[in-house]
Design a protein around this nucleic acid. Structure first.
Lengths: 209, 209
DNA sequence: CTTATATTGTGAAAAATTTCACAATAAAGC
DNA sequence: GCTTTATTGTGAAATTTTTCACAATATAAG
């Protein structure tokens, strides 16, 4: 599909908003509602839907249940997606405890570390030796991993992940990873986000980032 | 300044890359180097610099030390920026332990919670009762806060932050906060980022997000 | 059944962002 | 000090993204 990243992110946001509206008992939703809930224009919502052939009902808006199905299909979330975490520091633990992923059908299957002190085969999410990653990923068909190790160890850990057949990394280390051509990297850089926020606060004025 | 969000984020990335180059002993850097390090084009680097009147040396590239100063000025990081965290769950703890912020001159001064079990006035980063936020923010001139509470509590907590004079919120709750006109919200939504990554992995092909 | 009304769906226009391309020029070499 | 070479700085072009505007049409009302 020829949709850009921002469009995909917006689809996720629409989906989240739609869940909330559904929980409030809504059955239909209009492009205007989704616009209000997510902070974009109504045309943007319709255009985004149009890009993926999502159609509503001229006059009747969009039916929530079928919209959720359709968005789930597009975003690939109609089955549980299994992921691993590499690293088991504070951030990794926080992510393991985080309930938000499950709600989206994302299951963290295991964490991997090099520090034997951290190993715990019997935890709800087991913490395993890093050298077991490849076997584990193969056995469980893992394609996506979260990289939460210190900057200094990040590239090596990423290389091990690629070697284990992982095709997508959510990278929390503040460096640009060198990666094979068929792999996708999503960089999450909290310092940069916060620095960015501070910038906009200092130059004053409302802004949504 | 009429620079957009992406431009500011890129400036932060350039700065990070420049720090690394400096640590390797570099004294000068070319737009081409920064392009390689951050994954953009060299023209983009020059254009971004040009927007902020950052000038180099035709032929000699950019001098690293003055570039760092200038970027620091622009990004407002030549003094320590004090921030607070609202919430003290797993994510908040991970952020409190995180060393990356300090490196950028960002100091987390305190966390706030409503659960008395969490209070700890004597910790390195004290955890204080939520109702002390307003006084604390006023006394310490806090303008930026990190919001890391469950979705259900997020809007109320945000309102308390606005009331305390906070003008910028880094929001980890997966909802769109209603906010006053002079406040900036930076939404960090980890589920959406991960879902997004999964999307791109499933449709195959290299992509940097 | 006809009319009025509300909302979608989308091509076209506008705006924003990125890339191109090249003149300007500083440094190095001769 | 003249020439060559490498790199910046930036207007203009190209591309991408967003918004506009309105025809199409489903529903509701009369």
């Amino acid at each position: 599909m020829i949709a850009n990243k921002n469009c995909i992110i917006r689809l996720s946001r629409y989906k989240n908003a739609i869940y909330r509206l559904r929980d409030l008992g809504f059955v239909k939703v209009f492009s205007e509602n989704l616009a209000d809930a997510t902070g974009v224009t109504a045309s943007q919502v319709r255009k985004d839907f149009s890009m993926f052939g999502i159609t509503g009902n001229r006059k009747g808006g969009y039916e929530i249940s079928s919209l959720i199905d359709r968005l789930g299909e597009i975003l690939g979330k109609n089955r549980v997606e299994k992921v691993v975490i590499v690293g088991s520091g504070h951030l990794a633990s926080a992510l393991m405890q985080y309930k938000g992923f499950e709600k989206e059908g994302i299951k963290i299957e295991a964490a991997f570390d090099i520090d034997p002190e951290k190993f715990d085969k019997n935890a709800a999410i087991p913490v395993l030796p890093a050298d077991e990653l490849k076997g584990f990923a193969a056995a469980n068909n893992i394609k996506v991993g979260i990289l939460a190790v210190p900057e200094i160890a990040a590239q090596r850990a990423a290389d091990a992940m690629f070697d284990a057949g992982i095709k997508g990394i959510m990278n929390f280390a503040p460096i640009r990873l060198k990666s094979p051509n068929d792999c996708t990297i999503n960089n999450v850089n909290l310092e940069i986000e916060l620095e960015n926020l501070i910038y906009f606060v200092n130059i004053i004025g409302k802004k949504e980032i």
